[in-house]
Design a protein around this nucleic acid. Structure first.
Lengths: 214, 214, 214, 214
DNA sequence: TATGAATGAGGTTTCATTCAT
DNA sequence: TATGAATGAAACCTCATTCAT
């Protein structure tokens, strides 16, 4: 479980916050939630796969939902938000000459991030519609901070005459849809295909920038 | 539940196949599945909301999963596939001069379709990852028939010199991502906003055709 | 379980409100609660003794506490309160010449009642301190209606010059303590002794009326 | 927790038998048992309220029931029994002229005792029916020694012609019921009322001595 | 001595499903 | 056809107790 091991290291700043059993619980939970969905995964199954007693899960997480939140919350909080924001600040400060470069940087970064966190990503998008806590978290972090920043960046480039005069919200939606479309197709819908990320990212950037019309 | 009533009429060709109770069961099930997810909805809850006895559900549907499939299967089979295909044939036959018109027709049609079937749509995309039957159905209908047709159309326009020379798969992904991005934002993420569909569809078409660069 | 059978008949006015299984559940629950206490009785144990599946209990009673309340509530409501009140009205109306007769009637009646409901009585006094619902029920029925009536009766006899001039509350406490003292000693503390109820009741009445001093 | 602190000092002859943690455990246990009942109190709750680790409880008390017994046992053994007996011997030796004085002394003494030990008293009467160990302890100490002595005293006064010719057991029951009736009403049923103990004790003595008849 | 992570048996409750009516 | 009582497996969770540190 190399992917998962790294992941844990990322999610929890101080590794020693977690006992060995806790790590095993989290890893087993991530795998099960991603494969069968949160509601269809039983705590006894998680315990069995983690090699711990069922009671041990509840010593560390008061409820099953607590376990979910503690897995998926940090992903939203510590990763998505700060990374995105830092990236964007970098962009604004370094003042890339063209948005091409900016877009390229962003896409690669985000795609690498999701590739490292495929399972968590799947859990997150599956459960957001049903977990008000997650929805809130998401709206607060992404909806407010990220969209705000993104709007500024887009206006910045629009003023420089590089971007079309669509409303920033529409532009953001276009970009995000394209990115997610790629990520989901690549990782969830057709993971069995041979993907040349380098090339396909360039194509996606081309699509975002110039559309499909010749 | 006007939306649901129409819906039922659409899903089942011969309305009289369904008893009144069956209709009520299906409606209650759609509402519950969409709101809380398939796995988190109990059959007793469906029965209560439908105003029937618990046993009645199992008289008509052997298992709970049968109920799900019988709700979401027809959507895939009878709706998505035929509509899309028919649309596309229409396009190819009528031979729209420009893809602009074609795209516009498609988008409006698909968006109208999903608006009519918001709840079913939500159930479908939530459950596809977890229900092999649905995944198969989907892949067979969409993946094979639709993608095939779409590829032909794109090649058709590429030969006419109207479309950029990206691989058809990339183009399809771009278009579909943009459509879904709009539908999901509009119906699931931010349904509380005031949407002017006419205008926003035009913007989305513009994005698909020309991208974001000026 | 003849005692319990009668009991059920008393508690539920229309016997046919209860299925056979429900009766068995209630009887098993009463026995277990009385023997081991509510908190120390498991629902699985009740189910086993009742000869039903555990789920059956929860089909009829939403929670374990529901089961307790539905057993002990009617005892308070339908029995204690109305009986006592009716008795007392009878007394006031018939206007017994002396309180001796009244006391005697009361004691016999109450003692017979508790003898018929020994187990329920035990459950009731054990659980009242821990179940707010029961406390409320009890205070409302006994505390308010019964004490009020009793006060009137005592004042009635005090005016006739038959009763000592202690505050009614003190007199009620004295009488009730003596009755409960007898009932508890007789049924709970020393049930193994040979009790001649007739005689012992006369003695208790003598104690209440004249005290211990010669 | 002044009440509880004194209490502990009383229960354990050599205070230094107890570590600070042990004291905290006992105090927390008394409070919890009294409030929610023995069976409904978890050891983890006691540990938390005592500010110790869960394991610490089991270092001092082999089982949860051990803890209960070690709390409530001394109350029966070291307190009730010896006090009562000593009092009674005093009475017999000092040879109070009248039982009035004797009764008054007893009542005040017992009521003061229970007031100091309200919580323990509550635990004791709640748990006696369900804990054979306690029942035994109680029967051995109270049932045998106390009743024996009390019988002697009553016969003593009966011979002096001061007491009515009811069987001693009946007289004991009358007195004890009246005392408990007062203590329970005062401390458990209606603790929120303003009680003037001096006055109410006199009234209770009057009731015991002369009954309710004028 | 004290800790608190770990246990696993057992608690209450839910639930899809069956079946006699 | 429709019912809803009944089921029992399995869900989530609690808890007294143990044990390595």
């Amino acid at each position: 479980m190399n992917e998962l091991d790294n992941l844990i290291g990322d999610l929890y700043e101080y590794d020693d916050e977690l006992t060995a059993k806790q790590r095993k619980i989290i890893i087993a939970a991530i795998e099960a939630f991603a494969e069968k969905g949160y509601a269809s995964t039983s705590t006894s199954e998680i315990a069995k796969n983690a090699g711990v007693a069922e009671g041990t899960i509840f010593r560390h997480y008061k409820t099953k939902k607590d376990l979910l939140i503690s897995i998926v919350g940090p992903m939203v909080q510590k990763f998505i938000a700060p990374f995105v924001i830092r990236d964007m600040e970098k962009v604004l400060n370094q003042d890339h000459e063209s948005i091409d470069d900016f877009l390229r940087a962003m896409l690669k970064n985000r795609i690498a991030f999701v590739s490292k966190n495929k399972l968590l990503f799947k859990i997150l998008i599956q459960e957001i519609p049903f977990q008000p806590e997650l929805k809130d978290l998401f709206k607060r972090h992404i909806g407010m901070k990220v969209v705000e920043k993104a709007t500024l960046i887009i206006q910045h480039y629009q003023e420089k005459g590089q971007l079309v005069d669509l409303p920033p919200a529409t532009i953001i939606r276009g970009i995000v849809s394209s990115i997610f479309g790629y990520i989901i197709t690549r990782n969830l819908l057709l993971p069995e295909l041979d993907w040349d990320d380098e090339v396909e990212i360039e194509r996606t950037i081309h699509f975002i920038l110039h559309g499909i019309k010749k």
